[in-house]
Design a protein around this nucleic acid. Sequence first.
DNA 1: AATTATCGCAACCGCCGATAA
DNA 2: TTTATCGGCGGTTGCGATAAT
Length: 279
Amino acid sequence: MKRKRPARRGEEETGEAAAATLKRGPWTPEEDEVLARFVAREGCDRWRTLPRRAGLLRCGKSCRLRWMNYLRPDIKRSPITGDEEDLILRLHRLLGNRWSLIAGRLPGRTDNEIKNYWNSHLSKRLIAQGIDPRTHKPLMAAADQSHAAAASDKRTVPTEPRTMAPPSTVQPSCPAAGIGGSDDRARPADGGGDFAAMVSAADAEGFKGFGDQLCAEDAARGGFDMGSASTMVGDDEFSSFLDSLINDEKFVDYLVIEGNDHEQGNGDIGQGDVMEFKQ
DNA sequence: AATTATCGCAACCGCCGATAA
DNA sequence: TTTATCGGCGGTTGCGATAAT
């Protein structure tokens, strides 16, 4: 069930009243300079009042976005490398469309950049190779699955509510902070990225450590929630956990898939399954 | 050379959970 | 306890650049 947004807030920042006074559209170099200077001088703790204090005719959201996605000094301008692309693929398979979480693992990259790169490059390439970019499974199997899912539920995306980590685990977004990584909410992957199943599968195939701990605690609670998990074990440990999943052989090998599953149509990527993903 | 289609990126929109009042 | 505000997120749109016809 969607929560009704308070009208006042929307009117304030994005509504017609604001549109009459606030500037929109592409940022000018002058605006960029004003914003960058102001953030360097005053910091970026209160985006809502920042434009007024800085003398910008933009809404706070717009300023924040411009800073986060373009003006921050630690942003990489270079094209996404093969290694980064590989990491994006693995992380997307683990996390689904959790772009900020994915960006948190790629220093210098923003969630918007990764999202755009995924939508314009990687998802198309996967489709061309017969792989469903949402599930990372062969398209035929994915189609079967979604068909089955549709029969029981109109939605293919889990309707679980978001779980946001406490502020203590949320990194600041000012210059000193890394890019991305502010999303510790870590919902289960949208559309087929069933993280609990994935962790269990990884565990069943030899993954030990956090998988055991998280699954056991999850079982006790009656449901797995990666957001809680990351909070529960702390950022460093969660980070290590993620690293271990990313680097796990199972996910390294996933770049190449054997033809068997295509024929069997079960879509599962198990041990020995190798998914072709070459440029 | 002109027109149309496609692509990629920047920015916006609407929603959410957290939190201050 | 309730309500308003805030920061942050993912999804979507708009537009300029480029390619194709």
